[in-house]
């Protein structure tokens, strides 16, 4: 019981740290890491709620599994967009100097 409680509180704290990071960070990669830390916090609260001593509830586990895979896809999509913007930028800068 205490274990679940501890990890629930840590999950909420991780979520808070992640929100702070998203707002404060300037670099895209830092922002993405912060979003991923928020995700870890949410997963931790879910898994802690699924844990009852010897019995574990498989439904939150399945949700977290899907969540992890979707999170990596989202991160990749964000990085792709950031790199495309950067490329457009560099092309524009190259054209204006010519």
């Amino acid at each position: 019981m205490t274990q679940d409680l501890l990890y629930s509180v840590v999950g909420v704290a991780l979520f808070g740290i992640g929100v702070f990071g998203v707002v404060v960070a300037a670099h895209v990669i830092r922002k993405l890491i912060a979003v991923n830390i928020m995700g870890i916090g949410v997963f931790m609260v879910l898994l802690a709620s699924a844990h009852h001593g010897a019995i574990t509830d498989p439904v939150p586990h399945a949700m977290v599994l899907t969540g992890i895979v979707v999170a990596v896809a989202g991160t990749a999509q964000c990085l792709w967009l950031a790199l495309r913007i950067q490329l457009l930028d560099e092309n524009e800068a190259g054209e204006s100097t010519q």
């Binding site: 679940d4 409680l5 629930s8 509180v9 909420v12 609260v45 709620s49 699924a50 009852h52 019995i55 574990t56 509830d57 498989p58 439904v59 939150p60």
Partner: peptide, 13 residues
Amino acid sequence: ALLVTDKAVPGLA
């Protein structure tokens, strides 16, 4: 909010 909410034991297990 987490502490106040009753945990569904044993949930869907």
